[in-house]
Amino acid sequence: MTQPKNPVPALRLSGLEKSFGPMKIIRGIDLDIPAGERHAVIGPNGAGKSTLFHLISGHYQPSGGSVRLHGDDITGMPPQLIARRGLSRSFQVTNLFPQLTVWENVRCATLWALGYKYSFWRNVERLADARQRTEEILREINLIERWNMPAGVLAYAEQRALEIGLAIASNANTLLLDEPMAGMSHGETEHMVELIRKVSENRTLLMIEHDMGVVFDLADRISVLVYGEVIASDTPERIKANASVQQAYLGTEVA
């Protein structure tokens, strides 16, 4: 690489492993993601993509190896500690607070980063910074018109957008998005691509996605995960041209 880059990667995975009993799902992944990069993880079903996200975000404990966020070891930390360090994520299956309004959903996600923590002595309605941030995010994800609806009654695409809203609300510097376009129509996907492009500015983005059009459009680099191993990690052009990738994964679609 000739372009100048930050010597400490935003995310560094070294020899990361995860087994469930005798099943080895993640088999030693080494991956550096420089700060500010949009990085996509692709791979066939069951390759371990979501498991990889769960390991990075603290949902699962790795069986081996390490995860470093901006050089700090976060291996095996509980999710809340990782979230407080500025790594935020969305989920493949919509994962919101269904009875709370759209507004409350986003505001709850802003509170920790703004320093309100477990405060039970301040009126939440009077926190000007939380209110501004919430409004800003709802405008960004285009849900401001729906602000007083319970999240559970939103349309699917709106829930997916809110999912992104929760992920960016804390102003995290590193964003993990797990299949943000899953189950969306063509028009909705285009909308979502623009949204992700917008919210990933000045952030490091790691994203799982099946839609190759989206991946090649958005990603600076792509990693191909097959049976728990990264078989290639490169620019979209080179991944397209890579023979082993075509054989292992793209082959079925190109043919």
Partner: peptide, 17 residues
């Protein structure tokens, strides 16, 4: 409000810190 969030979806609350 975070209590309500825990009621609705405790798992997600951990990922907002």
């Amino acid at each position: 409000r975070i209590c309500n969030a825990v009621r609705d979806n405790p798992e997600r609350v951990r990922f907002i810190g």
